[in-house]
Computed example of a mutant assay.
Amino acid sequence: MSFGETGEHITENAFPTKSPDQRFERVVEYAPNAMILISADGTMEMVNAQTEIIFGYARDELLGQPIEMLVPERFRTGHPRLRRSYSEKPNPRPMGAGRDLYALRKDGSEFPVEIGLNPISDGEKHQILAAISDISERKHREEQIARSLREKETLLSEVHHRVKNNLQIIHSLLDMQTSSVIDIQAREALIDSCNRVRSMAQIHQSLYQSEDIAKVNFADFCESLISSLLATFNVDISRVQVKSNLAHVELTIDQAVPYGLIANELITNALKHGFPDGAKGQITVSTQMNDQEVVTLRVSDNGRGMPDDFTPGTSDGLGLQLIELLADQIGGTLDITTNGETTFVINFKIGK
């Protein structure tokens, strides 16, 4: 519950009856929150029944006493200064907005509270009406929710870690199998499979290491992917350079896995086929996101280009078929340009 939101001072004119004081006292007495009327010097002049229940004091134990007796000792010293500061510029508002407030019971126990302050004035006498709500149950529920979220985050992080480990085992098994395969075509197929498995493992590794285990920093992933592929194909970086221009884009796991596999296929294809026979050149990898949250992945190279008879959508190569299927999976579009540089552009909208 929020306090101090009446937006106007309370005066005697607010109670148009023959006995305004009695009506005011009745309103205070039966209020669902602890209500304490405080004088300008901080003395408690009126308390209601709920105050007795919440704080554990009898009414006559509170009347005439300083309000600081209900303030925990560690905050008591500075409280008179805060009270005077409020009296200099009184206005209806919550007390200590944005801070955790605590009150002190008769038995010495502390409990969290919300306090609304309302100045009351009859022209000569100035008082403060404090509405105090015990929020112990709400705080307890919030702590339970926070603890549950932490436990789920820990569990999810461990799941990503285990998935990553299992994928690395699969990658290692495929890599071992590759070394014993004599047929060149079969070996290349196994290497491609290794790279695909590793790209998925890297995504789960990114999630495991990230503070936000629900999102993948795709720029970091791409940098890691590029380094891995350069090592896999033993690329001479003085001959083939890979330039990256990667915007900060965060993707969910459902988006990052297919998008990561697409990036893997495109970069792999450029490294394997773009620069045969010692040819030199450059591969450019870039990402960006516009105001409509459309993410664009662009991979281009100035190598030998696609075959003369290449027609988008009709290729029987597994890599390009996989790219088309994955682009469709995330609701994206694939555009291929073969004039000059060979350029692949994947667009998709986050959250689609």
Rank of each mutant, 00 (worst) to 15 (best):
I10D: 10
K18R: 12
K18Y: 10
D21W: 10
Q22K: 11
V27Q: 05
N33Y: 13
M35T: 02
M35H: 00
S39T: 02
E45M: 01
E52Y: 00
A58C: 10
E61K: 06
P66K: 10
P72K: 00
R81Y: 06
L82T: 10
Y86I: 05
P92V: 08
P94R: 12
G96T: 05
R105Y: 11
G108C: 00
P112S: 05
E114Q: 11
Q127A: 10
A130D: 02
I132E: 02
S133G: 15
I135L: 02
I135G: 06
T154Y: 10
L156V: 08
V159A: 14
R162T: 11
I169Q: 14
H171N: 14
Q177G: 14
I182K: 13
D183A: 11
D183Q: 03
A186D: 15
A189Q: 10
I191H: 13
I203T: 07
L207F: 07
V216T: 08
D220L: 08
F221M: 12
C222F: 04
E223N: 11
S224P: 04
L229P: 01
N234W: 04
V235F: 09
V235N: 14
D236E: 11
Q241R: 15
K243S: 14
N245F: 12
L251P: 00
L251Y: 02
P258N: 08
I262F: 04
E265Y: 03
T268S: 15
T268N: 15
N269R: 02
A270T: 05
K280R: 13
K280P: 01
V285R: 02
M289Y: 03
M289Q: 15
N290K: 03
D291Q: 13
R298G: 01
V299W: 11
N302E: 03
M306P: 02
P307I: 00
T311A: 15
T311P: 06
P312G: 07
L318K: 00
L322Y: 07
E324H: 01
L325K: 15
D328I: 03
Q329V: 02
Q329W: 04
I330W: 07
T333H: 09
I336R: 05
I336D: 09
G340M: 10
G340Q: 07
E341N: 12
N347E: 13
F348T: 00
